[in-house]
């Protein structure tokens, strides 16, 4: 039996050879950083290296959790994610239903191609466009406000506008792309189900509700789990690009704090602790939601 397994492996030695380089890459660039996370419990000094730096227990976590900015960072992170989820999650589903229901094939294609396009623009371009359109003097939005006799608003420098602009532009950029996966699920629904519903006299609205939505529910659940699993990780690069000293009270999330205090100021151990807190919260959320979905529904990641 064992000899047989060994022979099976040996005759496929070239497949292992192919795997070798990618696996080495995974070990170095994905698993070694996990090993490096121990600096969160140490006082890392570059001259001593990761292993030889001295252990300090939970010192960095204590400092982070008791710092005066911790609760604000946490609230900024959690609320931004919640806002993104509530607005950003349903819209691609609605868009997919809209595209699916559009009778004209040509119009359908237009709608698809146009809404996919912004996904390919870079974040820098998106923030650049926000700066252009929301400019307090020359920006289109303020020009329209002026037509209605309203005072101009410096949107990009107002803390209270940060989350709305963040989420709104995210929807504009990604709703089309996000809808593809639902459209795929919609097109794999058995057409006879629609026919049967039609025979029973169900209106278009009722067919969406009773045939389309249940048909794509498994996809919705999987994507929902994935999104919950990156709760603390929401749009870090975008928040960083949109950040300025004036809106920082809302735009500073844990990830941008890690970048500024860690990479820019060199407090590696301290921010590794903050980063680990982020990763662990995400991982636990993923386990919880997936476990719940597995018990209550038939769809789960594993």
């Amino acid at each position: 039996m064992q000899g047989k397994l060994l022979r099976r492996m040996l005759t496929r030695y070239d497949l292992y050879l192919l795997l070798l380089v990618p696996m080495v890459w995974y070990i170095v660039f994905k698993y070694y950083p996990m090993y490096g996370l121990q600096i969160a419990f140490k006082d890392f000094s570059p001259s001593q290296g990761i292993w030889d730096s001295s252990w300090v227990g939970l010192k960095h976590f204590d400092r982070f959790f008791s710092s005066y900015y911790f609760w604000q960072l946490l609230w900024n992170t959690v609320s931004l994610s919640l806002y993104s989820l509530i607005v950003g999650f349903p819209i691609p589903i609605l868009l997919a239903l809209l595209i699916h229901e559009t009778p004209s094939r040509k119009f359908k294609k237009w709608l698809q191609n146009a809404t996919y396009m912004p996904h390919f623009l870079s974040l820098i371009v998106i923030i650049g466009m926000l700066n252009i359109f929301l400019d307090p003097i020359t920006g289109m939005v303020n020009r329209v406000l002026a037509v209605f006799g309203m005072d101009p608003v410096d949107f990009m420098r107002k803390a209270e506008w940060f989350q709305t602009i963040f989420v709104g532009s995210g929807v504009w950029q990604n709703m089309g792309w996000g809808s593809i996966i639902y459209l795929a699920a919609l097109s794999s629904i058995d057409p006879t189900l629609y026919e049967a519903a039609k025979m029973d006299g169900a209106s278009r609205m009722r067919r969406i509700w009773h045939v389309s939505l249940p048909g794509i529910l498994p996809t919705i659940i999987i994507l929902f789990i994935l999104q919950i699993g990156s709760w603390m990780d929401v749009g870090f690069e975008k928040a960083l690009l949109m950040q300025n000293p004036i809106n920082a009270e809302r735009s500073d999330i844990i990830a941008t704090f890690v970048y500024k205090t860690g990479i820019q100021e060199g407090q590696y151990s301290y921010t590794a602790a903050a980063g680990l807190f982020n990763s662990v919260v995400d991982f636990i959320l993923l386990l919880l939601v997936n476990g719940y979905a597995r018990r209550k529904t038939e769809s789960s990641l594993w």
Binding site: V28, K30, P33, Y35, G36, I39, I50, G262, G275, S279
Partner: peptide, 14 residues
């Protein structure tokens, strides 16, 4: 590695 990672700082140091 899709669900857990070392994060920014350890990767940067690497």
């Amino acid at each position: 590695t899709m669900f857990f990672s070392g994060g920014l700082i350890p990767t940067f140091l690497l």
